[in-house]
Amino acid sequence: MEKQLIISVSREFGSGGHEIASELARRFDLPLYDRNILEQIAQKHNLNIRRLEPYDEAPKNIFTSRNVKGFSNSPEEQVAQMQFRYLRARAEEGGSFVVLGRCAEEILKEFSWLVSILVLSGIGFYKERTMARDNTPEEEALELMSRADRRRKYYHNQHCRGKWGDSRNYDLSINSAKLGISGTTDYLEQYIKARYALM
């Protein structure tokens, strides 16, 4: 791409945010940063990724964590900061990429070439997809969704000023249940192209 482009995709659990981000990365021919950020960090610093993985996008427990002069004992906090540093460094180098979650809409907000998107769907769409895909009982599926979203919300709100899911923090919030995954991706592609033309 001639100009830099960063697309951040935040998502509600089960909204298809990951599929949408992957497809956007494919269509714009950009790398997708998700869990693989940790692989890259581990590779670069010769670290064991298995030690870092449990803390990916995990909120810290405020009762078991403490901060002292900018140092925190929380592994969740450390892994989050590693990922934020990685994303900022890629952005500062002039890299274009799609990033899934990881507070990117806030971490990278000073970069004017950032397009921040929130994908949500509501319970119906998620239930339908999860129950059809994994044969999961409804109650279990709902519990899974509620737990995952609570975890994402705490993680996000610990690191960002703006609240998770508040549409004022994103350039565009979209309900993927209305157009489906493919239709939502098409719509977002048009939106990003329009934004890119103005950059």
Binding site: Y55, S65, K69, F71, N73, P75, Q78, V79, Q81, M82
Partner: peptide, 24 residues
Amino acid sequence: TPIGASANVVGTSIAAKNGYPVTW
């Protein structure tokens, strides 16, 4: 515990920053 004294927080934080997170 990891939060009992300031030195614990600083030490475990330095370990984690270098890729060695220390759990409770």
